[in-house]
Simulated assay, not measured.
Amino acid sequence: MIKHVDHFHGSDLEKIASIYGIRKEDIVSFSANVNPLGISPKLREALAEKIDVITSYPDREYTSLRKCIARYAGTDLGNIIVGNGSTELISLFIQIEHPKKALIIGPTYSEYEREVSLGGGTSLYYPLQESEDFKLDVEHFCGKLNESIDLLIICNPNNPTSTSITRSDMRRILDVCKQHDIYVMVDETYVEFAPDGLDVTAVPLTEYYNNIVILRGISKFYASPGLRLGYAITGNDDLVKKINNRKNPWTINALAEAAGELMFQDTDYIKATRQLISAERSRIYRELSSWDTVKVYEPTANFLLFRILEDSVTAQDIFDSCIRNCMMVRNCSTFPFLNNKYVRFCFMNPAQNDELIRCIKQVLAGGPAR
């Protein structure tokens, strides 16, 4: 088992504010990977008008919400399971499948291994190679799959590398997993940020494969982590029944239910988000690629990973300088297979991104960030 080191999460603003003597309200979090547009103006206005929904229980089946999600994701209503954030659904799925041995493509989100461990299972990692820019070598990877593995866990696009697996490659992986009776859990938390034309989502594959479940949430793209709304997509009817039978009723509150029905139909907000992230992702990637002080990995999500090439500078140096200027980035030394030379940050609005880039550049040049 990989040993995980404690770190500051993107939500730990109170702790950071106390340590560094700054107000949490002044911190711009480049670590949380949340949409810089904030919640949709339409959602803000509509929720205020729908406040009375809290006087009634939600529909136990969440039929209207699931219909909205099905249309949004391009799948059938019967394939949708809703939950109290994708974290609850990850936990429920692992409790039901009860894998003895899971294989995780890493470096990635530590919660997967934790849930497998809580269920009494063990986790192995298939490490993405820095020499290949953290892109998966599908042929080599498929050669490592065998009958001893019960569950394969993939984050796509992956956090923190921002790399992704195309649908055609995912199909190849699913074919091999089917041969070895391996269930595949794909976390698509960041898939809505992926570039147009890059076929990343595996949702269409649920029509043909019954050994895959896809997890999504609204925390990042819709900037609503506090609503705790997640959903799973699978073509496996037995799994749908098992999860629905196990999970508690009304796990989604009435406001989250109402918000979900609104946000998945807010095409203006969706378009604006994709345009902003696409433009800033391209611009910032080009900028950092021109530096000789870092190596940057081509991103497909709303965040970017880079490796520091300056011997005298560490990820903690950059974290400290940025936070003293009220900007929080992620020191990635806590991720499996990464060290104190890796930093991740998400894309905010252009002016904030420019300020962050100036700060990082100043640290790499050996001077204090101002």
Results as ranks from 00 to 15, higher is better:
Gln362Phe: 07
Tyr342Ala: 05
Ile252Val: 15
Thr161Ala: 12
Arg71Leu: 14
Pro195Ile: 10
Asn79Phe: 09
Tyr285Lys: 02
Val138Leu: 03
Arg114His: 14
Asp133Glu: 12
Tyr126Trp: 15
Lys100Ala: 01
Arg283Asp: 10
Lys24Phe: 12
Lys361Val: 04
Cys142Ser: 02
Val329Arg: 01
Asn159Glu: 12
Ile154His: 06
Asp311Val: 08
Thr234Lys: 08
Tyr125Pro: 04
His9Leu: 04
Leu364Asn: 01
Ile233Leu: 14
Met327Ala: 09
Asn158Lys: 01
Ile22Trp: 04
Gly106Thr: 05
Thr108Val: 06
Ala70Ser: 14
Thr161Gln: 12
Leu205Val: 06
Gln316Trp: 13
Leu215Gln: 02
Pro195Arg: 08
Pro195Glu: 11
Ile308Arg: 13
Ser312Tyr: 13
Leu13Thr: 11
Lys271Asp: 08
Asp311Thr: 11
Lys271Glu: 12
Ile90Thr: 11
Leu37Asn: 12
Leu89Cys: 02
Arg114Gly: 09
Lys144Asn: 14
Arg281Tyr: 05
Asp320Phe: 07
Arg66Leu: 09
Lys3Gln: 08
Val82Ala: 07
Ile19Ser: 13
Phe306Arg: 01
Asp238Gly: 03
Glu14His: 13
Ala202Ile: 07
Pro204Lys: 04
Leu128Lys: 06
Thr234Asn: 08
Lys178Gln: 10
Pro249Gly: 00
Ile182Asp: 05
Leu309Asp: 09
Thr251Ser: 08
Tyr222Gln: 04
Asp137Cys: 14
Tyr125Lys: 14
Ile2Leu: 07
Pro350Val: 04
Pro157Gly: 10
Asn210Tyr: 11
Arg228Pro: 04
Ala351Ile: 11
